[in-house]
Design a protein around this nucleic acid. Structure first.
Length: 559
RNA sequence: UGCCCGAUGGUGUAAUUGGCAACACGUCUGAUUUUGGUUCAGAAGAGUUCAGGUUCGAGCCCUGGUCGGGCAACCA
C-alpha cells in the first residue's frame, strides 16, 4: 500500500507515508475535491481530481466531492451539474459522499457562537473600506478595530441579529480575533461571516449570513473526516488560519492537514475561470464545451478520453514549483491512448477525383481491410472499390520533389488495401488552374494479398470510392492562442488565434461511417484522430479532429 | 524595509539514511512498415541559480546572496 515500484513517490505521497508511519488519524487517508460551482472545470481541475481520487485509491481510503458553495452571488445549479458530470466522466467515484459546504451552515453557525462565547470572535460594525485600511499592508502591521473588545454577550446578540436579518448587506461582519500585527495578512482578524441577502441555490432564503472560505473550508474538511486537504499553492499562506480555525472546534486528536501543490499551466491557452468565462460570454468560442477550450467538457467534445487525461496527469507529475506544460504532452497522451483503441477509417478531407482508365466500368470490388492493426481482435471490414475514387488533393503534385512519396505524373503509388496505380495524366480546372481530375491505370495483379502486391512502392494513399462515398463536415481545430503564454502581454485577447477553427464542408468518407453516433472515435488513416461531434445527425455527419497524426513529412517541409 | 513558497537538459518530473544526475515529452539519426502513423535501435542536450561552509564525498545538510511565484475581496 505504501510503495509503487513503477513510479517514485510524489511529495504528497511522501507526506502521507510519514503520517501513516506516525499513526496520525489512525492511518486513514481521506481526500476530497472541493470546487466552487461558479464555472466549468478545466484540465487543471482534472489534474487535481485525478490526484485526489488517485491518493484515495492508492491508500485504500475515501474520496469526497464537495461543493464549496458559500457565495450565493456567484454560484449556479448549471455549474453543479456540469461539475458532477465531469468528475464522474473522469472516473472519480465519490460513492455516497456528495456534499455541499451549505450542508454545514447550521453546524458552522453553532460553532461560531461558541467561538464568540470563548471570546475569540467579534462583530465589527465598520465598513469594508475601513476594515481594509486597518488591516495594513504586508509590510505594515494592522491596527485593531475599535469594536474588537466588545463583550461576548454583546457580540452574540449582534451576531444573532445579523442572522435574523436585522441588518443590511455590509453593515456588520463577524471577525475572528487573531492577531492584527501578524506578518501573515490572513491572520489579521479575518472575516468569518458577511451579510448577504441573497438567494442560495440550495438553502434558498434561509440564510442572510454566509461563511467565508477560510472559516468554512477547514471545518468542512473536519466534518467529513478529511485527512489530507490538497489544494493549490496560493492557499499556502492560508494554512495557519486553516489550522487556527480547526483548533477552535477540535474535540479529538483527529486533524485534517492542508497540503499545497502547483496548479497546472498549459502552453498556448489560458486557465483562469474568469478568462474562460470571458471567452464564452464574448463569443470567442461557442460555449464552455467548445472543442478548443481547455475545459473538461471541451476536451471531451474534442475527442479526448478520460484515460488519456489520466496518462497526461501521470506524466505531468505533482510538485510545488510553478510550471508550464507543453500542449505537445497532452497531444501525445491522446495519441498514445487512441492508437490502441481507435478504429481506422478512410476519409478524404480535401478530395480530388481520380479515374482509373483500365478498371472495368461498373465493377465494384469489396476490399477486406483490418479495423485496427494495433488490435487483432478489432476484426476487419470491407471497403468498396470502383473506377472512380477520391484521394487527398495534397497527395498529388504536378512537379513533385524527390522526397515526395506520393502521386505525380508517371509515378506509382499504392492505394491502401486495394491496388497499385500509376498516374498517366491529369486535368486542371480551366479557371482556377487547380487540379481537377487525375487519370491513372492500375495493375490488376497488385490487389492486396496477391503476389503482385508485394512489390515495393514508395507511397501508400488513403482513398474513397466516389460512388460509395458519404459526405460529411469536418472541423479542424488549432490552438486558441497564437502565443505560447497568452497571459504575458497586456491583454490575452490580443493573442487569440483567428484561425483556430476551420470547417471543411466537402469531405468524403467511406460508407461504413454512415451509422456513427456522437462521441464515436476513429483514426482517419494518415490524417489523425477524429470523433463524431454532438452536432452530428444522420442527415449531416459532423466530425471533430481531436489531434492530427504525427507528420514527419510536414515537419520536413516546414524546415 | 514584511511574511510564505520555489529554483535540476528546450519542457515537466526523479535521484534509497549525503555516494560522481534518471525517466517522459520534444529534437535529431537509422531500421521496419500496405498509415511519411505505430514499433524498434541509437544520438545530442543539464553537471543541478550563485558564493562560501561542513564532509573522504553535496542536487540533497548549513550560511549568505540572486532570480521567480504568492499574500493587503465582506471571492474561492
Amino acid at each position: 500500500m505504501i510503495e509503487n515500484e513503477k513510479h517514485p513517490l510524489n511529495f504528497i505521497e511522501t507526506i502521507i507515508n510519514e503520517d501513516i508511519k506516525e499513526g496520525k488519524n489512525a492511518g486513514r487517508v481521506h481526500t476530497r475535491f472541493p470546487p466552487e460551482p461558479n464555472g466549468y472545470l478545466h484540465i487543471g481541475h482534472a489534474k487535481s481530481i485525478i490526484l485526489n481520487y488517485g491518493l484515495a485509491k492508492k491508500y485504500s481510503g475515501k474520496f469526497n466531492l464537495r461543493f464549496d458553495d458559500t457565495n450565493p452571488t456567484k454560484e449556479e445549479q448549471e455549474y453543479v451539474d456540469s461539475i458532477m458530470e465531469d468528475v464522474k466522466w473522469l472516473g472519480a467515484d465519490w460513492e455516497d459522499r456528495l456534499f455541499f459546504a451549505s450542508d454545514y451552515f447550521d453546524q458552522l453557525y453553532e460553532w461560531a457562537e461558541k467561538i464568540i462565547l470563548a471570546g475569540n470572535a467579534f462583530v465589527d460594525d465598520q465598513s469594508a473600506e475601513i476594515i481594509s485600511e486597518q488591516r495594513g499592508t504586508p509590510t505594515k502591521p494592522g491596527i485593531e478595530s475599535p469594536f474588537r473588545n466588545r463583550t461576548p454577550e454583546e457580540n452574540l446578540d449582534l451576531f444573532r441579529r445579523m442572522k435574523a436579518g436585522e441588518f443590511q448587506n455590509g453593515e456588520r461582519v463577524l471577525r475572528a480575533k487573531v492577531d492584527m500585527a501578524s506578518p501573515n495578512m490572513h491572520m489579521r482578524d479575518p472575516v468569518m461571516y458577511r451579510i448577504l441577502h441573497a438567494h442560495h441555490h440550495r438553502t434558498g432564503d434561509k440564510w442572510c449570513v454566509y461563511p467565508m472560505y477560510d472559516w468554512a473550508h477547514g471545518e468542512s474538511d473536519y466534518l467529513e473526516g478529511i485527512t489530507h486537504s490538497v489544494c493549490t499553492l496560493e492557499f499556502e499562506v492560508h494554512r495557519p488560519l486553516y489550522d487556527w480555525f480547526v483548533n477552535q472546534i477540535q474535540e479529538t486528536d483527529y486533524r485534517p492537514r492542508q497540503i499545497e501543490f502547483a496548479r497546472l499551466n498549459l502552453s498556448y491557452t489560458v486557465m483562469s475561470k474568469r478568462k474562460l468565462l470571458e471567452l464564452v460570454k464574448e463569443r470567442y468560442v461557442n460555449g464552455w464545451d467548445d472543442p478548443r477550450m481547455p475545459t473538461i467538457s471541451g476536451l471531451r467534445r474534442r475527442g479526448y478520453t478520460s484515460e488519456s487525461l489520466k496518462l497526461f496527469a501521470d506524466k505531468v507529475g505533482v510538485a510545488k514549483r510553478n510550471n508550464v506544460i507543453d500542449v505537445a504532452l497532452l497531444e501525445h497522451s491522446i495519441r498514445e491512448d487512441l492508437n490502441q483503441k481507435a478504429t481506422r477509417a478512410m476519409a478524404v478531407l480535401d478530395p480530388v477525383k481520380l479515374i482509373i482508365a483500365n478498371y472495368p466500368d461498373g465493377l465494384v470490388e469489396e476490399m477486406e481491410t483490418e479495423n485496427n492493426p494495433e488490435d487483432k481482435d478489432a476484426g476487419t471490414r470491407n471497403l468498396p472499390f470502383s473506377k472512380e475514387i477520391y484521394i487527398e488533393k495534397n497527395d498529388f503534385m504536378i512537379d513533385p520533389p524527390r522526397k515526395f512519396f506520393r502521386l505525380g505524373p508517371g509515378r506509382e503509388v499504392r492505394l491502401k488495401g486495394a491496388y497499385i496505380i500509376k498516374c498517366e495524366d491529369y486535368k486542371l480546372n480551366s479557371e482556377t488552374g487547380e487540379i481537377e481530375t487525375i487519370y491513372c491505370t492500375y495493375d490488376p495483379d497488385s490487389r492486396s494479398g496477391m503476389e503482385g502486391s508485394k512489390r515495393k512502392v514508395k507511397g501508400t494513399l488513403h482513398w474513397v470510392s466516389a460512388q460509395h462515398a458519404i459526405d460529411a463536415e469536418v472541423r479542424l481545430f488549432d490552438r486558441l492562442f497564437i502565443s505560447e503564454s497568452p497571459e504575458d502581454g497586456e491583454d490575452y485577447k490580443t493573442n487569440i488565434n483567428p484561425g483556430s477553427l476551420k470547417i471543411l464542408e466537402n469531405c468524403k468518407l467511406e460508407p461504413s461511417l454512415k451509422t456513427v453516433s456522437p462521441g464515436d472515435k476513429f483514426q482517419f488513416q494518415r490524417l489523425g484522430y477524429f470523433c463524431v461531434d454532438l452536432d452530428s445527425t444522420a442527415e449531416k455527419l459532423v466530425f471533430n479532429r481531436t489531434v492530427p497524426l504525427r507528420d514527419s513529412w510536414a515537419k520536413m517541409r516546414g524546415k
